[in-house]
Design a protein around this nucleic acid. Structure first.
Lengths: 251, 251
DNA sequence: CATACTGGTCCAGTCAGTAGACCAATCTGA
DNA sequence: TCAGATTGGTCTACTGACTGGACCAGTATG
């Protein structure tokens, strides 16, 4: 029997065929990024093909291939002699999510917060170190002082959630939370500016912290869930009804 | 001054030149992954160049280029007529460090997958459209065919999870999953290359799909949880144990 | 309406990667 | 021991993506 190499059922995932995307796909991706980053609106003109080719360090032919791709997807419109124009943005695809309208995004962000922060709270209860607990206490304290001053407690709220995230000791979850950060700040602002919300939120935080200190993952998860329910409850869903864009299948 | 060319202040980061890595670099990376995943020891032999070329879907010339790279880095040793051997592997530094590091992140990645995909499954059960169900069925089918062919079903697995993510109709969660995509692919390969795993995974998928079709969010979440539990059941750290960094507080 | 842009098309050339043949070293088993 | 199979080493012809131009055809604009 072969000793060095694995036997017949030789599943070596690292040795599966490599796939290499053609260059124009990378260029198409870049063009989309450019559209989003430059905040181009429908009808706006893109730079000329020669300009794009020079800036992207690629031949004009390749740029054209990329444009054809985006054209067939209905995203760009090409006018001979006129230029290339933004025709439509498909909000369901990839990083373009940021152009999705706010009222559709808020519930989605809240769902994502629940998905990430409930497990984070549970993990934090399991893994927190002394330093983590100190950071959590400090975040709690900051919000306490802010609320006492009649402030809405944005800073303390942020510090607390960051400290809990750190305490989960999972760099991947932490990175995803970072990614959500911008949007989270938005929902946080919405929530905390509601009448009577900050003291309530503070109480929620104290419950979460208590469960984390006690090292009780289930209680921590429950407390975080309750907290996010309160955040989500409010009038958010009245103001911003969830997107009802596609037909669901009746159950 | 040239007015035709864009001004220097025209910072469009998305339009910077694209860089494309040569194929043999990707191959070298793959070979390193293979070394780590297959738990090769110093002195062990790698598969022959012809075999590698066939499995990686690349020409022998390219494989040789990759081997030369790893040879000059002192990682591989090539013996004419004998084969290619692992010469030295220092997981604490050099190119292997990155591969090992990535591997150490896999448990964290799996936790993140649980956090995201369990709610995603539940949401998918609530919101799936006919088109979503078709995409899910198609992913299922692809994996069924792959497994029937004795393949480990990497493609089908990916297609299935992507389809479920789409069906959740939450662009934020979708983007976060996208962000994880590369790391998730690694957990996938790691899991599916275990003996007898692909058929089991397929059965898990069928359970998830059934719950989504039935529109039962709780069942879908449970099925996804069970599936990810199975996926997470790896023996990852026999070779390169991660560093134990911080003391947890006793509960 | 002249000019200077725009996209549309074509073509010769470059170069990474492929496919296969063949040689040289080495391993293996009768 | 030795023949045959298998390994790495080298070379060549070929393919195809991509390049870098030239040139044509629309369109905008003074």
């Amino acid at each position: 029997m072969a000793t060095g190499t694995p036997p017949l059922t030789d599943a070596a995932p690292a040795l599966r065929p490599v796939a290499r995307a053609p260059l124009h796909e990378a260029i198409a991706e870049r063009l989309l990024s450019h559209v989003v980053q430059s905040d181009l609106k429908v009808g706006d003109r893109l730079p000329g093909e020669r300009d794009l080719a020079r800036r992207l360090g690629v031949s004009r032919t390749t740029v054209r291939q990329a444009i054809v791709v985006l054209q067939t997807q209905g995203i760009l419109e090409v006018r001979h002699g006129g230029g290339t124009f933004l025709r439509d943005l498909d909000p369901t695809s990839g990083p373009l999510a940021r152009v999705v309208e706010r009222r559709h995004r808020l519930p989605a962000v809240l769902e994502a917060r629940r998905a990430l922060e409930i497990p984070i709270a549970a993990l934090a209860a399991e893994r927190r170190t002394e330093a983590d607990l100190a950071a959590i206490a400090s975040g709690l304290d900051l919000m306490r002082r802010e609320v006492a001053n009649g402030d809405i407690g944005l800073e303390g709220d942020g510090a607390f959630h960051r400290a809990v995230t750190e305490a989960a000791h999972n760099p991947v979850l932490a990175e995803l939370m970072d990614r959500l950060q911008e949007a989270v700040a938005e929902t946080r602002g919405e929530s905390l500016s509601q009448q009577g919300r900050p003291p309530r939120s503070l109480a929620d935080h104290e419950a979460i912290a208590a469960a984390v200190v006690a090292g009780d993952p289930d209680a921590a998860a429950d407390a975080m869930r309750a907290h996010l329910d309160h955040v989500a409850d409010l009038r958010l869903f009245e103001i911003y009804p969830p997107a009802q864009d596609a037909q669901e299948v009746p159950r």
